[in-house]
Design a protein around this nucleic acid. Structure first.
Length: 303
DNA sequence: AAGAGCTCCAACCGCATCCGA
DNA sequence: CTCGGATGCGGTTGGAGCTCT
């Protein structure tokens, strides 16, 4: 066996030192040449493993450890209905989220939905339903008049464990048309976690507000927001530009600078949590001319 | 307090696609 | 055109940590 070096391939959880090596590699060479990391002897990890680690954990501006907001939930649910299990594609619409995040979110949601539907046949069987109710503090305290806001209200209410996360571009673009404008019922399949919790209560034969009200109850989801009326192509583009890593990483990579990579959102995405320094005009200035062709025209102020 | 059950998520695997030689 | 390596993607799994009884 001489001449044939037996390579020990590391698997499993990453150590901080390994992360550091990986980050250094990306700083020097960009997010590519993953397999050279092993061939250079920097890490005993496969290129695939390195890439995955970078994409899912080390990439800048990831919302690691943050629960999906109600808005993100809605986007995932909507896009899943549209694209199917194209997690990578869906993830491009959710800044800071990876395909793995979306995939995990969806599968746990599916499990939960399955369980709820099963329990709906056996209302008394769900000791776990009680747990679910507990996961949404203040659930029973939401007055009926607030029901149409439930989806957004639950954004804060439903994630007892998750820290609050930064507002995404998507959310930001929609704050002026928050969900209170959309009380009407939409596709019942679009249950958010919060809605599912209500559904679960229903499945146990108990309306969340049954104690005080007798109105017909149904989970209420906001309608697609204006930003979602963009053509999918444009959204793709937006999502790419939105990715903060797009500029951050390449700014550090000299050999990639030749193209002078600069995206129209630079200066925006990095500060999206605080304020938007650009004027609306400047903001749209660099978009492709046809980008808004398929947008539904907003009513003019005079109307 | 302890054990069982459950959820979440990081990471692996296999297949598909891309791309350069 | 073809082949092989690199990369991307979606499905799956295993373990840590949490909740419930």
């Amino acid at each position: 066996m001489e001449g044939k070096r037996v390579e020990i391939l590391r698997k499993g959880p990453w150590k901080a030192e390994e992360d550091e090596v990986l980050i250094n590699h990306v700083k020097n060479y960009g997010p590519r040449d993953w397999s050279s990391i092993r061939s250079k002897g920097l890490l005993q990890r496969t290129g695939k493993s390195c890439r995955l680690r970078w994409v899912n954990k080390l990439r800048p501006n990831l919302k690691n450890g943050c629960k999906f907001t109600a808005e993100e939930e809605r986007v995932v649910i909507e896009l899943q209905a549209q694209f199917g299990n194209k997690w990578a594609k869906i993830a491009t619409y959710l800044p800071g989220r990876t395909d793995n995040d979306v995939k995990n979110f969806w599968s746990s949601r599916q499990k939960r939905l399955t369980r709820i539907l099963q329990n709906s046949g056996t209302p008394s069987s769900s000791s776990k339903s009680l747990k679910l109710k507990k996961e949404i503090p203040g659930f029973h305290d939401v007055p009926l008049m607030e029901a149409s806001k439930l989806s957004s209200s639950m954004e804060e209410l439903s994630y007892s464990k998750g820290q609050s996360c930064s507002t995404s571009y998507l959310e930001k673009s929609q704050t002026s048309t928050k969900v209170e404008q959309f009380p009407e019922l939409v596709n019942p399949q679009l249950y958010t976690d919060a809605n599912m919790a209500q559904l679960e209560l229903m499945s146990r034969g108990k309306h969340p507000y049954a104690e005080t009200r007798s109105q017909v109850f149904f989970p209420q989801i906001p309608q697609p927001q204006p930003s979602l009326t963009l053509s999918l192509e444009s959204q793709d583009l937006l999502a790419k530009f939105e990715d903060p890593y797009f500029s951050q990483v390449f700014a550090d990579v000299p050999e990639l600078d030749s193209g002078n990579v600069e995206h129209p959102f630079s200066g925006f995405s990095a500060k999206e949590e605080t304020d938007i320094p650009m004027t609306p005009d400047a903001f749209f200035h660099d978009f492709p001319a046809d980008m808004f062709d398929q947008m539904e025209p907003l009513p003019s102020p005079s109307e």
